[in-house]
Amino acid sequence: MDFLANLFGSYWPAVQLTSWTLIKIIAIVLPLMIAIAYLTLAERKVIGFMQVRIGPNRVGYFGLLQPLADGVKLLFKEIILPTASNKTLFLLGPVLAIAPAFAAWAVIPFDATLVLANIDAGLLYILAMTSVAVYGVIIAGWASNSKYAFLGSMRSVAQIVSYEIAMGFALVGVLMCANSLNLGKIVMGQAGGFWHWYFIPLFPLFIVYFISAVAETNRAPFDVAEGESEIVAGFHVEYSGMAFAIFFLAEYANIWLVCALAATMFLGGWLSPVPFLPDSILWFLAKMGALVFFFLWFRATFPRYRYDQIMRLGWKIFIPITLVWIIFVGAMMQTSLGYLFH
């Protein structure tokens, strides 16, 4: 240590801070990668059980090593660059898809103290990052120079842009209640048991947020961007091997992200539901896991939406609901019942 301190001289504190931050980033990204890998297995298992099948059970006990096997398989597959594609953008697409999906985790509070960047505009940062994620899809679809990929990316972009508005409005309700954009403060605003959590006064917004989250991540029943029966696999149809896997990782990272956000915003984050149990990160993980389970459940039970119905749901139903509820919350805050909304 002393040797290093001498080597960097006056820059030593800065170097220390940087390396400490890097370690924290790894401490977030590594468990996240494992969570993503096992979400793929959980998805196959859960849907399997719902359809009275067994699901993957060959690699390791109960198929527990299946994600590793899949990862190794994808790593060793050839990455094909289509001749007619735009090579630079074709390779940039997966990067732009996964970078925001991971970057957004910087402000998620796992615990009262466990947060990488405790910034005041945390919620805005997350909204900005999730809206940037669409570039991966749009660039991948265009650079592939393929009709299916292009159609898929167009659908996906229109859908994400539409549902972002409803999602943003749903979160506006939360920040009205919490009086802050800082995610840590939003969680602390819900302290005192599950009857203080925001999902009760903001129930319509919670539902709108969660359904919009499913649409934002392009998951069933809103997965027209992939639409296997119509456009094969949508925007990533031309990708193979690890490049395809990156899109896959980004999708599942986004699922975890929107569930983490829903748990933070509406379900009290790391707070315990009843006052006599201690607050801990385990509550946060449990809430997140429960919400992720809904994603799998939706996929196993709902048929795919028709495209015009998706647009109608987003623009003509969700946005009016959120607008009305925001005005209602704002009006109620001025009355003597305002304490219910804080």
């Binding site: 805005l124 809206s131 940037v132 570039y135 972009v157 229109a158």
Partner: peptide, 17 residues
């Protein structure tokens, strides 16, 4: 952040579209 959210996240997406 508002610049990224509004211009990069919404306006430019429609431009590209």
């Amino acid at each position: 952040i508002a610049l990224v959210l509004v211009y990069v996240g919404a306006v430019m997406v429609l431009f590209l579209f």
